[in-house]
Design a protein around this nucleic acid. Sequence first.
DNA 1: TAATTGACTTCGC
DNA 2: GGCGAAGCCAATT
Length: 108
Amino acid sequence: MSRFRTRVIAVVRRIPAGQVATYGDVAELAGAPGAARAVGSVMRTCAARGVPCHRVVAAGGQLGGYGGSEAMKRALLQAEGVVLAGSRIREFAVRRWQPGRRTSAGRR
DNA sequence: TAATTGACTTCGC
DNA sequence: GGCGAAGCCAATT
């Protein structure tokens, strides 16, 4: 169990429902900018339970992947209130979660 | 310990 | 806009 892994988990757990974060973003918040692939690897190993890994998406608003069940990830995101346009997140720039960003108010 | 793979990202054609 | 190649980091074998 590397510290990086725990770091990624902590960051992902901080992502509020209805919002998403990119792998690169999570990597940076985890303290490893550029480690987007590493973040994917951590997620792929299930990281830990209670971690909404489905809120972590690829850059450009793409879904990325979810153990091969991309459709499931899509359903989960929509269930959280994320509007999807095909296989992409609508208003991704707004839906993207950022630390310091006010999310409880729901305002963008 | 070293090599390979992978839920990524970005530039180029 | 879609396909291809290079770069980066960590986990797994």
